[in-house]
């Protein structure tokens, strides 16, 4: 509608602009057919299939899922939330890495500076810590949920085994991260934890020595735990997660109904 001066209203201009962008070749090239972001998307059964089938989501989800699996009360979304927390922890962890040096001299000061003089530093650190605790919890609850549904029964036996590995890796990730602030809490919790591991006969002391880079927690341990925490364990856990998700679909999707 004209404003009386031969011009267009702002809202109309924006609308026109949006239409032009969504009809443009750049936008067109960004989304595959059936994307809801594409111009002219309509909510048809075919397009509903395309949203999954024609996008990267197809690596995670099939086009259709069992109706009972969609109910929140069946899964409580625990597996998905564990995965999402992992992503959140990766994002916040990368942020923290910018401000952190894994040496006995610098680590504590860096964390202190991060909490006091970096914008949102304290918030991101808190999110990383509480998110990590939450992830241990959701992974554990996810395992319990799977057990009570008997979802580890054939053909899903091996996916359960992978799941236990993922729980172990989650615990290790959390435990290696525990040391990094290099405060009294970190040092002595890790000392107690590794002492417990050292009780394992035959290879226990060896593993403890390799893990600590010595006979007790030192600056070497800090570097080791840092590398394990930010590189090695995430790398391993991503591989296990990929197999885990893949097996969920190959073994016939979500289990049940009871």
């Amino acid at each position: 509608m004209a404003d009386g001066n031969g011009g267009l209203r702002l809202s109309e201009r924006i609308g026109e602009m949006a239409t032009r962008v969504r009809g443009g070749s750049v936008w067109e090239s960004m989304f595959r057919p059936g994307s809801p972001l594409k111009k002219g998307y309509s909510d048809t059964p075919r397009n509903r299939s395309y949203v999954i089938m024609n996008s990267v989501l197809y690596h995670l989800h099939p086009v259709k899922v069992k109706r009972h699996g969609v109910r929140l009360s069946y899964t409580l979304c625990l597996g998905g939330l564990s995965f999402f927390l992992f992503i959140l922890l990766t994002i916040t962890g990368i942020f923290l890495m910018f401000y952190y040096r894994p040496t006995a001299e610098a680590a504590y000061l860096d964390v202190e500076a991060l909490s006091t003089s970096v914008a949102f530093g304290s918030l991101v650190r808190n999110m990383h810590r509480w998110g990590a605790h939450l992830m241990v919890l959701t992974v554990f609850l996810h395992m319990s949920r799977v057990f009570y549904h008997g979802a580890y029964k054939p053909p899903r036996e091996f996916n359960w085994v992978i799941g236990v590995m993922l729980l172990l890796l989650t615990l290790l990730l959390s435990f290696t991260g525990y040391l990094l602030p290099w405060d009294q809490l970190a040092l002595w919790a890790v000392t107690v934890g590794t002492n417990m591991g050292g009780f394992t006969p035959i290879f226990g002391p060896g593993v403890k020595f390799a893990l600590l880079g010595g006979i007790e927690v030192t600056g070497n341990t800090l570097l080791r735990f840092y590398v394990l925490h930010v590189l090695f364990l995430p790398f391993i856990i991503v591989i296990f997660m990929a197999v885990h998700f893949w097996r969920v679909r190959k073994d016939g999707g979500i289990s049940g109904p009871l």
């Binding site: 964390v111 909490s115 605790h133 615990l171 290099w182 040092l187 107690v192 007790e216």
Partner: peptide, 20 residues
């Protein structure tokens, strides 16, 4: 975030992370 790690001051009690 407690005080800096100190090998000579063992806190009492020393506790592992909660999941351990």
């Amino acid at each position: 975030l407690l005080e800096l790690a100190n090998f000579n001051a063992t806190p009492n009690p020393s506790k592992a992370p909660w999941y351990f």
